[in-house]
Design a protein around this nucleic acid. Structure first.
Lengths: 395, 395
DNA sequence: GATAATACCTTCAGTCTGCAATCTATTACA
DNA sequence: TGTAATAGATTGCAGACTGAAGGTATTATC
């Protein structure tokens, strides 16, 4: 370890403390980091020189003594845009370095555009959302499996243009930014973990029951991605005596098909759960519940999460199902997690993307990755207060 | 970061390099650690003073120049004993700091002893195996679920004396050592990962099919333990149309019961796989295979391991089953792992326990845990050459 | 035996930290 | 209004540590 590496480490510690506090006096930073006030002062000078921190107007404390001179993050030094590019809708959320919301958008995804044009569209939308900051991080959630190494996308039937490497490459060339990609369910899980239904927990599994069955796994505040990004895809499990794939049960597609097989024409999958129902619909529901139980049991056996979050279009209709599911779960496994509904609604993906992007941004400004790993991170008050959380119809 | 912390970091790096090499010149250590030769020399002086390293007799190199003075680990400075305390047999393996085998034992577990007496027996056996070294680490694998925080044991039907905290506490008071406890399947997975069927891979899942169904999950060279130590227990999954628990299929107990239900009296579970078989036995086999497929599919969906290892008493009989299982797996999931049989046999648990204990020992002598985490670690040549690996009948 | 090559050690300048003293801004109070 | 009290921020200094350069011991080769 070179001598100057010590400085790096301390810089990282102070910067991380400052990000978590948002604004703090040097004395406070010294307490939190357990460094001497002298070192903190010197490091803060460096951060100011780097444009990452500035002195805020001093505050009157009411007590005798010199006024405190708070130091604050230069939040606008960097920006992060989270994009949740779904098959039908695209959510975007722009925040500054402290997670304060700078802009948001919700548009129908122009799903019929070519790969290149779709990338250009996303690039335009991102640029419309943020002034060009000193540095910019963009994270895009895609409805497919994203390879952790190469960002190659596959299995994206709802938006096939993004498959392969072209979309990724085009978008990267479009934006003067570091652009990351991930599976939308993974990001949604990250969002619910940090600010949603699993807030404050160390581990959670989120199932996104939409067109298909998606899953995201967070253990120790960290996304479990696996070799090819398929982790948590319990849709492959055989279900029932005929060994149907679980994804055929736990998806809008499957629900509609099951209803049709019983001669029921329904306007939307959600209608299946609109009480009261006739006996044939009840059978569809029961089958869905059995499938859901299997998924949650599998997730429990696999990861022992503290919470299982249910999201996606169908989830809102499941409130009535939860108590029974929870009871059956208690009977099935010795360590049942709590099952909850998504609380971020269709914003979960964009919020998760922002969190992922902030993670990258913090590393870029010199925060040691090991600090970010197990920890909760900055407050993100701006995101917490986000209006429209959980309501799909707010723009 | 205090100034002296830099020394710690470099000491850790040099010590880790030295452990991996076993014996190395200072120049070699400087290369590996990317530190200056000066720093390495100073750090080595410190290690020698601490009794962890010593100069070996200098070697003639054949090339011009001063003779090299190799530095070697004082392997006998510490000892590690791995204990696999099963319901019927107890395997023990003692190694030094470099993983060189110092002693081994295999005894029937005195399963009828009381909690206190069983702990005393284990303590005696461990003491019989190793001289008292400067420091001693013991890791005990138990046939039950071990809480990661408290070491409290539960669900150990095959050795109920060890349940709760009494056995753990008694054994700890018996031995002048740091004593760790873990689930035997977890340790077996660690063993197969490091030296057995999954050697060289980053991730693996091992199912131990014995009296019950056990599982161990290793991701990125690290055991996934979960909140209560239950991770990987897919025995809770419902199987087949009647929703029987998978553990009832994938266990010696379940196999015997299934055979009996079909009117077959068998001497041992293994006999079920002794070819050729009559039709009723074939049905039992088929059911077992279906269950196995479910377990492997679940593990694949959950973790995407590179390898799935099958171990336990029944595993040896499964060689003929593997090709068909592998083929069905390829059809079921897009990212099938390789399925292999355990190569360490009933030594896997003890070897895994030793590896776990070495991990603790290395941390105790000052190796930074983050170095150990993602890395492969010392060569453990002594363990690799262990005679009797894979043969249950060698003492 | 001289010379070159190699490994290890020592010296020295530089960076960084923590401690303690000092500087500076503020409030309380006569 | 002036002075003491108080507390945050900075600076001087000693100590720890590193890397680079140069020194010394040991060996092979001519």
């Amino acid at each position: 370890m070179e001598p100057s590496a010590a400085r790096q480490v301390n810089r990282s510690a102070v910067l991380w403390a400052l990000l978590q506090e948002g604004t703090a006096t040097r004395v406070r930073l010294a307490e939190v980091t357990e460094l001497s006030a002298a070192t903190v002062s010197r490091v803060v000078d460096g951060l100011v020189a780097d444009g990452l921190a500035r002195e805020a107007p001093s505050l009157r404390t009411g007590r005798p003594g010199r006024r405190v001179t708070p130091v604050e993050v230069v939040a606008e030094a960097g920006a992060v845009v989270g994009v949740d590019l779904g098959g039908s809708n695209c959510r975007m959320l722009a925040v500054d370095l402290l997670g304060q919301v700078m802009g948001r958008a919700r548009k129908p995804t122009p799903a019929r555009l070519s790969t290149r044009r779709l990338a250009a569209w996303v690039g335009d939308e991102v640029r419309a959302l943020v002034e060009r900051p000193p540095f910019l991080f963009v994270t895009v959630g895609l409805p497919g499996i994203v390879d952790i190494e190469t960002s190659a996308v596959r299995a994206a039937p709802n938006l096939p243009q993004v498959e392969g490497l072209d979309f990724v490459a085009h978008l990267r060339s479009q934006l003067p930014a570091t652009v990351g990609f991930d599976n939308d369910s993974n990001l949604a899980a990250l969002g619910e973990m940090r600010l949603g239904a699993a807030q404050g927990k160390r581990s959670a599994v989120m199932f996104t029951i939409g067109a298909g069955l998606g899953a995201g796994v967070v253990l120790d505040h960290r996304l479990l991605r696996g070799r090819t990004g398929l982790v948590g895809e319990f849709g492959y499990l055989p279900f029932g005596g005929r060994g149907e794939a679980l994804e055929e049960i736990l998806s809008a597609r499957g629900l509609v098909a099951a209803a049709q097989r019983r001669g029921i024409e329904i306007p939307s999958p959600e209608a299946i759960f609109a009480a009261p129902a006739l006996p044939p619909l009840r059978a569809v529901r029961a089958r869905f519940e059995d499938g859901l139980l299997l998924a949650v049991v599998a997730a429990t056996a696999a990861y022992e999460p503290e919470v299982v979050v249910l999201g996606g279009g169908v989830a809102d209709s499941l409130a009535a199902v939860l108590p029974r599911l929870q009871a059956r779960l208690r009977a099935a496994v010795p360590n049942p997690p709590e099952v909850r509904l998504s609380s971020l609604g269709d914003l979960a993906g964009a919020i998760g993307a922002v969190i992922s992007g902030l993670h990258d941004a913090y590393i870029a400004v010199g925060v040691d990755p090991s600090l970010l790993d197990g920890s909760v991170g900055p407050g993100l008050e701006g995101l917490q207060a986000l209006p429209g959380k959980g309501h799909a119809d707010v723009p």
